[in-house]
């Protein structure tokens, strides 16, 4: 049985592997969330900018608002990897 014969080193390696997967999921899934959020805002922002060039600054700002979500994901993965 694989589990019964597992050494301490192997268990640690496995644990750090799972941590890495967790960190990856944290960033990846949060990134998907951000993408979904920015999708609608981005489309509307491009429309607004096409109507009025002065909107560009504000439109860019609105577009990056959901970026916070992926930053949280990044922070979680940093905590997982480097604490």
């Amino acid at each position: 049985m694989a589990i019964e014969t597992m050494t301490v080193e192997a268990a640690q390696a496995m644990a750090s592997g799972y941590t890495a997967i967790g960190a990856g999921l944290a960033v990846g899934l949060a990134g998907v969330g951000t993408g979904l959020g920015e999708m609608g805002i981005g489309a509307a922002a491009v429309g607004a900018t096409a109507e009025d060039r002065d909107m560009f600054g504000l439109a860019l700002l609105f577009t990056v608002l959901p970026e916070t979500i992926v930053i949280f994901g990044l922070v979680i993965s940093l905590l997982l990897l480097f604490q």
Binding site: E67, T68, I71, F72, L74, V75, L78
Partner: peptide, 16 residues
């Protein structure tokens, strides 16, 4: 909480 934690981007974006 979310606004304070939002400043974490200073560290996180830099590290990436």
């Amino acid at each position: 909480i979310s606004h304070v934690l939002s400043f974490c981007r200073i560290a996180a974006v830099g590290l990436s």
